[in-house]
Write a protein that binds this DNA or RNA. Structure first.
Lengths: 249, 249
DNA sequence: GCAGTTAACTGATCTATATCATGGAAGCTT
DNA sequence: AAGCTTCCATGATATAGATCAGTTAACTGC
């Protein structure tokens, strides 16, 4: 029997004051989204935001809630998913610092189509959707940037459909691990640690598979020296091998 | 053996002059997207568009082409899909009058992620992406409307992922038929004809299934009196039964 | 109206992955 | 450090749907 290893993922990513008022401006200013705005504009935009902290496991909102807010991840990791009544969830993404989520536009009284839950302790910045609408009206360049953000996600979503319908589970998992590595990876000596507490179940929800199948594939990856993994952590050892495996041919 | 019926779908939907210059303004003005703009603004926007006609089967663009144009369907039906090298395509949507496709924003030198092909003879309006970007800059309300259009598609794409991963093929087909009925349906005495030449292969590409499986399910639907169908056409007889079948429970 | 082509139907078989079931390891809790 | 809970591994079995294959029906063009 393979022996699993202790988790190298640090679950406490923020301290209590990460969301303090005086830090908001700095966080917003760092976002590529707001790059190029004057300090004055940035300050006025900052006025409209406030910040909220969540502990690991807490929900930010549920699918069906009235969608009147837009959020930005300031610190921590958040999973965004749709839940099937049967318990078959589908994860759309794991959000990290700088990612937007919630309601981007002022669609009259709509509801969130998905649910968001903190994976680690997190801090999010929050703004009323109509306030954000006014900002977009005042700064058309931001509106165009917003279109680009949403369009990128649309393209990614379409590619996910493509992968689910034409790739094997093994390839989908390989792909997903590469994406997670790229987005959440931190270099640790000779491996790339995915810096979020990801379970087999999470991977199953990301790849449209079952936890058992994911477990089998991950075991195989591990015995081939491609990854290292344990309870709630994964780390990529051989990136090239993963890339080969994910090839569509 | 069940005998199939002659197609009631009219494949010739446009005449040669449907795209004539003097019709463009009328078509643009009808679009909900441009609703609320002054006649003057509309005329200046119209200046930037030109129109192109395609015969059934012709391609508007291929995945990978340089994405420098935005299109609007003026008349006809267009399928938009991704093709897998193996021949396993994934259809994203069937576009009808008023739908946008192509490149909405001025992303520096990107490529189309999908391929578009006319299902009937069609006419499309066309604008350079950077020209459209200027329009969005001039009319921030249009930019916000654009965000809404893309966001709706994103939500639809995510729901497609959800359906593929958690519903049976039968349910997915039922769902897809309902969507097609809603979008392309025309009432014919006691049935709703889907007004586009849709093959079993097309349905397979829409539902992430094979043509054979689709054929079997459609045969069953037909013998249950839920639909009527033949070579390149489908018509819904019993909407309620389809809705029941598509229920997720 | 006949020949050729493409789309659709259906039977037989196969397989990737889900399901069901059990045991073991990691990490909390007190 | 003992007990509890959650997560992970893995074997055995079942099955939805893919694949392979052969036939029939609708449309197209001459």
């Amino acid at each position: 029997m393979k022996t699993r290893r202790k988790s190298p993922v640090n679950l406490i990513t923020t301290d209590q004051n990460a969301c303090s008022i005086n830090l908001r401006l700095r966080i917003l200013g760092r976002l590529p989204f707001f790059a190029g705005l004057s300090q004055k504009a940035l300050e006025s935009i900052n006025q409209r935001f406030n910040s909220i902290g969540y502990n690991a496991g807490e929900f930010i909102y549920f699918a069906g809630d009235v969608a009147d807010k837009l959020f930005v991840v300031a610190e921590g990791k958040i999973k965004i998913f749709q839940h099937g009544s049967n318990g078959r969830n589908v994860m759309l993404d794991i959000l990290a610092e700088g990612d937007f989520f919630g309601n981007l536009t002022v669609l009259g009284a709509s509801n969130y189509p998905d649910t968001t839950q903190a994976l680690t302790s997190t801090c999010v910045l929050c703004i009323q959707s109509d306030g954000f609408g006014q900002i977009l009206n005042d700064y058309p360049r931001l509106a165009i940037k917003t279109i680009q953000v949403v369009e990128k996600r649309l393209i990614a979503a379409n590619q996910r459909v493509f992968k689910i319908s034409s790739l094997t589970v093994e390839k989908r998992i390989a792909f997903t691990l590469l994406e997670l590595g790229q987005k959440l990876g931190v270099q640790k000596d000779n491996s790339l640690l995915i810096d979020a507490p990801i379970s087999r179940d999470d991977l199953a929800e990301m790849t449209a598979a079952t936890a058992e199948t994911v477990s089998r594939v991950m075991s195989q990856f591990q015995s081939n020296g491609i990854i290292e993994s344990g309870r709630l952590w994964v780390s990529i050892i051989n990136m090239e091998a993963l890339r080969d495996l994910s090839k569509m041919e």
